[in-house]
């Protein structure tokens, strides 16, 4: 098998990773954003990014995958980790000591995706994250998110799927640049023949 075709096989396998959430539209990279290193990083995951808590219902695992959207389908926000309130609804004097998730909301072809940062931050650091993401979005047609989905109880119970899904994101990339969580910045990539 030639190197490119083997790579495509790996990519296909990655897309076939267990997907517990709603049926997704075609979220492959139609914008030429991702390169071989991005796909290899997805393949090289040696453990799930999310998994079930021991002794808490059915066992499940969720790996990161790349999902790509039109840039204008995404809105950004910082939301309080407890109340889920948007930062702009919170008294400025109270924001200082609070913890905020960086949140990306995507509305695409009738489906809604909510991407949250893995941990929460101070208001200032959350906004720094949001500003970085905004820089990657500005003037772009497409954006790709490296994220793992959190299954809902409906997913796990086999109930009817809704039109929204929740994810935890570890990276974002556009043709303007790339921003990864530190744990993935440090990933050692295998550059040998595939």
């Amino acid at each position: 098998m030639t190197a490119p075709s083997r790579l495509m096989t790996l990519v296909s396998l990655a897309c076939a990773l267990p997907n517990l959430s709603m049926t997704h539209n075609d979220l492959s990279d139609r914008y030429g954003i991702l390169d071989n290193e991005d796909y290899i990083m997805m393949e090289n995951q040696d453990h799930p990014a999310l998994n079930s808590v021991v002794g808490d219902g059915p066992s499940w695992k969720s790996y990161n995958r790349w999902l790509c959207f039109p840039a204008d389908s995404m809105t950004l926000d910082c939301r309080d980790h407890e109340s889920d309130q948007s930062w702009n609804l919170i008294d400025p004097e109270e924001r200082d000591g609070m913890g905020f998730y960086a949140v990306m909301d995507v509305s695409h072809e009738g489906l809604y995706y909510r991407f949250e940062s893995p941990g929460w931050f101070s208001y200032e650091n959350c906004h720094q994250q949001i500003d970085e993401i905004q820089e990657l979005l500005d003037g772009q047609k497409g954006i790709c998110v490296f994220a793992a989905d959190i299954p809902s109880e409906e997913d796990l119970n086999g109930a009817e799927e809704g039109n929204s899904s929740a994810w935890v994101f570890y990276g974002i990339k556009s043709l303007a640049g790339k921003s990864m969580a530190p744990i993935y910045e440090a990933v050692e990539l295998y550059h040998g023949p595939l």
């Binding site: 999310l50 079930s52 893995p118 941990g119 809704g162 929204s164 440090a186």
Partner: peptide, 18 residues
């Protein structure tokens, strides 16, 4: 448009820092 609600199980999340 109505965005459906959902309930998510407790989750173990990879630390962003390692």
């Amino acid at each position: 448009t109505l965005v459906s609600g959902s309930r998510h199980h407790a989750t173990c999340v990879d630390n962003r820092s390692g």
